[in-house]
Write a protein that binds this DNA or RNA. Structure first.
Lengths: 199, 199
DNA sequence: CTCCATTTGTCTATTAGTCTACAAACATTC
DNA sequence: GAATGTTTGTAGACTAATAGACAAATGGAG
């Protein structure tokens, strides 16, 4: 995941955001390949020159959307741990789980990549990020266990992603808080399982 | 109601709109007099210089908001008549009544002026516009009647405004379509009354 | 009243975005 | 395949918006 040096000028941020919003919006109605640059700048309400100032092709807009979403995913995942030295499960309150707020925030994006066949590849990208995050946590907490950290991380990552898939395809029937609670309870359940097995 | 020569540059339109949105937004939480120009440009996410390029004081922003709303009010009122030579009541379908769509569109504004004591003066401005519109219609259609057109127009204007007040204070409990239907039925009712009296 | 922080209005240099126009590449239709 | 319209990429002249700095005005708090 590459990172461009962040723009400082408000105008740049706003213009780029408008282009990203426009592209996502158009992708809900039209095939990516059929979307013209003229379409994008028209829905973004910008001059075509502005597009060429920041991007070379429409693909680059989408690349940046991915970057944005993944960065925000990482941030929201880590947010509950902020300032916490040692990982303590009982301090991880459901309200601290910002993950589903993140999904809701990028609703349009998630609907898109879950519905489209062609964009399915990005699902793995998301899971890979989730796995890395989980792996980092596990490394800090359960080094003595006999469980393979990679497998455990992947297990957790895809489990969470499963919840997201379910949520999105239910058309966001539940609140993000409800989803956070569900995740919390599932974690607790799994944790008590472990304790049971150890005893 | 005066009309500034419309700006052509997108940037101007966007910046001004951002300032208007910001002001309306702030007025929901803070007294007008306590809102600083710094507050406005910060919520609008614009440089302070941009404010001074378009306005001299915050009052001028609000003046333009009023202009916008009243212009849109007139347009939405007249929309059903577009292209119609002679006023025919039975052709005025409920779906053609765009008035409540207008109110919904400017929700924030209407809530503001109906809740605030200090902004109550603008209610009369709106009614005055509605009366003028009604007067124009009446002039075209019922010159032979013995009813005083001014009184009739004012009657109609305040009647419609009454519906708006009710709708706003119900916190938009009904759909704009429902409101349009209600208005339509009320007009029909009154019309058939008239026929009854004539016969 | 004095001190301190905030807001205000104004300014400059720089950059982003605008509009317009153009020729070349692409598509469609006949 | 010629003719038509649309999209593309690029360029130039112009204007709006930016960040940043500044002194003056305003406004509390001690």
């Amino acid at each position: 995941m590459y990172m461009k040096n962040f723009p400082v000028d408000r105008r740049v941020i706003k213009s780029k955001q408008a282009l990203k919003d426009a592209l996502l919006n158009l992708m809900n109605k039209t095939e990516f390949k059929d979307i013209t640059i003229t379409d994008i700048v028209q829905t973004a309400n910008l001059n075509r020159g502005t597009f060429y100032k920041h991007y070379e092709m429409k693909e680059h807009i989408f690349d940046e959307i991915i970057d944005d979403v993944l960065s925000d995913l990482i941030e929201s995942y880590r947010d509950p741990y902020k300032g916490v030295e040692i990982f303590e499960l009982n301090k991880l309150l459901p309200s601290g789980i910002k993950l589903f707020d993140h999904v809701e925030k990028h609703k349009e994006f998630y609907i898109l990549i879950l519905q489209s066949n062609k964009l399915a590849g990005f699902q793995h990208k998301i899971c890979a990020v989730l796995k890395e995050l989980a792996l980092k946590d596990l490394f800090d907490s359960q080094m003595e266990s006999s469980i393979n950290p990679e497998i455990n991380a992947s297990y957790q990552a895809y489990a969470i992603f499963g919840m997201i898939v379910e949520w999105v395809s239910s058309e966001f029937k539940y609140s993000s808080n409800y989803m956070a609670n569900q995740l919390f309870e599932l974690i607790m359940l799994r944790h008590s399982d472990n304790i049971y097995k150890i005893q």
